[in-house]
Design a protein around this nucleic acid. Structure first.
Length: 517
RNA sequence: GCGGGAGUAGCUCAGCUGGUAGAGCGACAGCCUUCCAAGCUGUAGGUCGCGAGUUCGAACCUCGUCUCCCGCUCCA
């Protein structure tokens, strides 16, 4: 099964390239690692996905507004967000098992073991002393416990200083002195500790020397947080309210792979929802539900989605879950929903010295709002839609066709208008129809090759409808509409084409599904 | 980054023990007119990922490099 799925991903990659959805970036120069460009059909599909998200967020919710923040941000932003520290992971490899670890995690695991020893000492003592046992007293006075505590403190201090001073030789020395072994191989044969900065940096200011280092944003969220007050004040927003943003983010991943699933330059669709402290977990649950509905409303198959609740929470979160999608390479994260508490706003208050609070007229007091975040990878969503839609069909006559069963509302081209032949004025009639439809729908005209071949071409790029002009059209102004998925044809008056397209290729019906409170 | 595999036409691939490239599909132009890729004629497209070395001669051998795929890892 895994092997077939590998092939499936390969087929999707080939199809995406062959039909102008996704190209390797700068391909004529051999490409650039894990960077891809969206082609003529890809950009349409991507824009449609964006529109579906944007409408679901901003248009349907009167308390959610949009934002488009700059990619460059003040460097202090990333100190406040924790990215400067958290995105500088010191890594170390075990030469025998070939496993890679975060060096600080290895040490922290070691410290956890010592903590376990303390717990055991406490347990033993509790048994010994019975009811008279005073835990705090014991922790303060017991020699062994104090010894463990001192050791932990010393190790932590040394690790901190190694990280802060970028002294990786000492970091490695620490690991060796503690005789930390690889959990897999049991070996203590380590490489050097190396630093991987996951943020791209560049220089602001054209004169070298005068320039200051700035980063390409590693997430779009901070652009929302730093604008929280601007939006709240100028939009007269009251809690709870949300700010939505679609934009690029950049991470210098150690390894970026699996087509457009993990790229170094990627696009996020994020909505930060500001709520009253204490209500965040209710909103977290509500948004989990809401976001899942948004996905399922597309009709790619409910079984392709599942939740993954985080047990180990990031430093900024008090609840977190992923919506995972059944990609060709298995269930993987598509969207994250996080209850971020007031971590971000408080950090920005601290670093900027500005109050980022909300005056609650009911309670007659100020407080820093809590935040519930929904964050989806646009490129991942694109891959999910593409993968779920890619279908190889064997027809009744034994021939095969490849069809992209895209949700019609997301299809790059909504309708192809095809004259049955190139003669007898059929092309002119087809052009006339296109000239009417093109103001509202993406259209294509094709007169080359047999009609069946043209249908297949449209199938391959997911065009939901083909309108065919034949000789009868000239007589009674009727055309046939051919359905991509059923291949069935229906003869209708020309003026009915628009109605069919409006009804079946717009986002409206999908949006209605998710807007039922 | 480490280990394994692979780069030949838009796609899928063939190309023997080294003798300067082929197929199928696709694309384009025309003919035919027939509603589900299958007719006919013609055309375009590759310095075989890139660079160096060995050789009289390299798609093929050697080295380097880039990119992709799988695993480790990380995450949107």
């Amino acid at each position: 099964m895994a092997k077939n799925d590998d092939n499936l991903l390969k087929k999707i990659v080939s199809h995406a390239k062959e039909y102008g959805f996704v190209f390797p970036s700068s391909e004529i120069y051999d490409g650039l690692s894990a960077t891809y460009d969206y082609g003529q059909n890809g950009v349409e599909l991507k824009n449609n996905i964006k529109q579906y998200w944007w409408k679901a967020m901003v248009q349907l919710n009167e308390n959610i507004v949009g934002l488009d923040a700059a990619i460059f941000m003040h460097p202090t932003t990333w100190k406040a967000s924790g990215h400067v520290d958290a995105f500088n992971d010191p890594l170390i490899d075990n030469k025998d098992s070939k496993k890679r670890y975060r060096a600080d995690v290895l040490v922290e695991d070691y410290l956890a073991k010592i903590e376990t020893k303390i717990t055991k000492e406490v347990g033993k003592a509790a048994k010994r002393f019975g009811e008279a046992f005073n835990k705090n007293e014991f922790m303060r006075t017991n020699a062994r416990v104090l010894g463990y505590k001192e050791k932990i403190a010393a190790i932590e201090k040394r690790m901190q200083s190694a990280i802060e001073n970028q002294n990786f030789d000492d970091f490695k020395a620490l690991i060796e002195e503690l005789e930390i072994a690889c959990p897999v191989s049991g070996s203590k044969n380590w490489t050097e500790v190396r630093q991987f900065n996951l943020m791209f940096s560049t220089e602001l200011g054209s004169v070298a020397g005068d320039a200051s280092t700035i980063y390409l944003r590693p997430e779009t969220a901070q652009g929302i947080f730093v604008n929280y007050l601007n939006v709240q004040k100028t939009g007269r927003m009251k809690l709870p309210f949300g700010i939505a943003q679609i934009g690029k983010a950049f991470r210098n991943e150690i390894i970026a792979r699996q087509f457009i699933f993990r790229m170094r330059e990627f696009e996020q669709m994020e909505m930060q929802f500001f709520v009253k402290p204490g209500e965040e977990l209710n909103w977290y649950k509500a948004w989990k539900k809401q976001r899942m509905q948004w996905h399922k409303a597309l009709g790619l198959g409910n079984a392709k989605y599942r939740f993954h609740d985080h047990l180990n929470l990031a430093h900024y979160a008090n609840a977190a879950a992923d919506i995972e999608f059944d990609f060709p390479m298995g269930f993987k994260e598509l969207e994250g929903i996080h209850s971020r508490t007031d971590f971000d706003l408080s950090a920005h208050e601290k670093y900027s010295g500005k109050k980022l609070q909300f005056f609650d007229p009911q309670e007659n007091k100020n407080y820093t709002p809590y935040v519930v975040e929904t964050s989806i990878g646009l490129d991942r969503m694109f891959l999910a839609v593409l993968a779920a839609s890619y279908t190889e069909e064997t027809l009744e006559d034994g021939s095969e066709r490849v069809v992209l069963s895209l949700p019609p509302a997301l299809a790059p081209t909504k309708v192809a208008v095809l004259p049955l032949t190139k003669k007898d004025g059929l092309p002119d009639k087809a052009r006339a129809i296109i000239n009417e439809l093109k103001f509202d729908f993406t259209t294509q005209y094709d007169e080359k090759d047999a009609i069946g071949k043209r249908y297949r071409r449209q199938d391959a790029i997911g065009t939901p409808y083909c309108v065919t002009i034949d000789h009868q059209t000239l007589e009674d102004n009727t055309v046939t509409i051919r359905n991509r998925d059923t291949m069935a044809q229906e003869r209708v008056p020309i003026n009915k084409v628009r109605e069919t397209l409006e009804k079946n290729t717009s986002l409206t019906d999908i949006l209605r599904k998710i807007n039922t409170p």
